[in-house]
Each structure stands twice: as C-alpha cells, then as structure tokens.
Amino acid sequence: MDFLKLSGKPVVVFGVANKKSVAWHIGKTLEQHGAKVIYVVRSEARKESTAKLLGDRPVYVCDVEFEEQIESVRDQIVADHPEPIAGLVHSIAFAAYDESGIKPFHETGKQQLLRTFDISCFSLIAVCNAFKVQLAHDASVVTISISTTTMASENYGFMAPVKAALDSSLAFLAKSFSKFSEIRFNAVAPGLLKTSASAGIPGYVDAYLFAETVIPRGKAIQTQEAADAACFLLSPRSSGINAQRIVIDAGMAINYFDNEIIAKQMKLD
C-alpha cells in the first residue's frame, strides 16, 4: 500500500553527511515507500566518504554557499531526471564558530553570523528559487529546524536566531510561491538528536542526557522520528499543512516543572 503516495516520484534530498544524518534517515525512509530519491552532498570529499552508504544511488555535489553550484546541480539533476520533482529536503546547517569556541552572544562576529545565515537559512531560499520550475505544481519542501529558538542555550549560540529566520522564511516562501503553484513549505523541528553534527557542540552530550530526564517517556528523540515526520510532510497526505513547523520533542516542552525534576534540583542546590 502506497500510504505516502510518493511511489515512483522524485524527491531531492540535500544534506547527507553520514549514516547518522537526518537527511539519510529521510532518504532511506522515502526509498522504503517507493520514492526515487536523488541525493545532494556538500563536496566531492563528502561524496567519497558517503560512497559506501549511498551505493549506486544518484548523488550530486553542491556547496550551497556558492549560488553557481546551486544552479549547476539543478541543471545536472534536470538533465538526468527530467520529470517534475515531488519533494525537496533541505537538511543543511553550519555554524561558523571560530577557533576560540563559544562566546557570549553579544560578542558574535558580523562575518560569523552572516556566513551562518547564508549557509543555514538563505540556502533554502536560493535552492527553492533555483528549482522552482522543476518542482511539481503541488510539491512539498521540508527543512530541518530545532524545537525552540527562544531558549537561550549558551552552547548553541547564534545558531538559534539563524534557525528562527529559517522558520520565518517558510511563510514568505509559501506566500510568494502561491502566486504560481501549490507548493508547500514546512519544517520539522526536533529536540536534541544524537547526530555527528550535534556531537561537535560543546556541552551537547550533557544537554542531551538532561533532555532524557525531562521528556515524559524518559527517552530522547530518535533521528528516525524526525525523519518520519519529514516524510509525512513531503507526502500528499499532509496537503493541508503549509508554512508550519512541526515540533518533535516527545513532550519535553510541557515537562520542565515535573515534581520529581524540581525535587532533584532543589536537593542539589
């Protein structure tokens, strides 16, 4: 049964880095439902490092920091896969932390912030604009955000405001694309995940373990759970959802004032 109604349809997935990537989990789940997944990785080196993982699947290279590469990869994909693209996944994030590590937010450098915004947020706009003609009339675009952009976690730094801009761009993309299509733009916003990228954030492991104590079920979010939500948003089954962010946190946001958690903290103090 083709529940997702994506069987045989092309979906372009940007952002696979390794087997822990959200993009990889999305891609393999789409494949299980019969979609024709086209992968885009950041560099030739990344293509080589993921060769064993991706096997003989179609894989293209594009560093979204360079708009000419976005146009080039579009042309390559269109030449090889001329049918309308049913879905597009933007699973790209990069924080330009400098060698001195995480600083107080007010010390964020201008170039740091602008480069982070360019790669992590503007790239969504640029990719969608480049692919607008190739996307099916009712295609779905999904990006990967975070569960909250207003909790001031010091170790996440200036990445949260950039993700907030990414979330905001969904509404504006949905509005502007509505002038000529029914293309939808949504975000999956998971809580803390165990990925290779997150492992590089100072203090992340402790935050991840703390999240497990706050989540009502006592278990952190699994990457597959975020991927499953993304696949739903990519499918016609979610046709009524547009310009939204779907939070995947297993209820963490409702449980900060759990009696047991408060009691433990008060004893520590």
Rank of each mutant, 00 (worst) to 15 (best):
V64H: 02
S123Q: 06
L173W: 00
M159E: 01
I85F: 11
V78A: 11
F185E: 00
P202E: 13
V13M: 07
A189H: 06
S100L: 15
T116P: 03
Q32T: 11
P58Q: 10
S140H: 09
I146V: 08
T213E: 09
Q134V: 11
Q69C: 02
G34V: 09
N259V: 05
R184Y: 00
T29C: 10
V141H: 01
V22L: 02
L6A: 05
G34S: 09
A243Y: 04
F14T: 01
S7I: 07
T150M: 11
I246N: 10
S168M: 05
H81S: 08
P190L: 04
A220Q: 08
T195Q: 07
L193R: 05
S7R: 12
I70P: 00
R57Q: 06
D63Q: 05
A17F: 04
F185N: 00
T116G: 06
E71C: 06
S49Y: 05
V22P: 00
L4Y: 09
A230H: 08
Q76H: 09
F94L: 15
F94E: 15
S153N: 13
R46Q: 11
V64P: 00
S72D: 06
S198V: 09
A227C: 13
A95N: 14
I215G: 05
I26Y: 09
Q32N: 12
I26M: 11
F210I: 12
V205F: 15
V133Y: 13
W24R: 05
T150G: 09
E83N: 13
F232T: 14
S100N: 15
F3C: 10
V205A: 15
C231Y: 12
A220V: 08
V214F: 05
S100H: 15
M1L: 07
Q32H: 12
A226Y: 08
K163L: 01
I125W: 05
K20M: 03
L54Y: 09
G157M: 03
T150H: 13
A35F: 08
F232V: 15
A207Y: 10
L135V: 01
K103T: 14
S239R: 05
K179Y: 02
A199W: 13
G109W: 15
I246K: 13
R237G: 10
E71M: 12
D56R: 12
E31I: 06
P10K: 08
S178Q: 00
S120R: 07
E83Y: 14
R217Q: 10
K175H: 07
L53Y: 06
T223H: 09
E65C: 02
I221D: 07
K36F: 11
N242Q: 08
I38A: 08
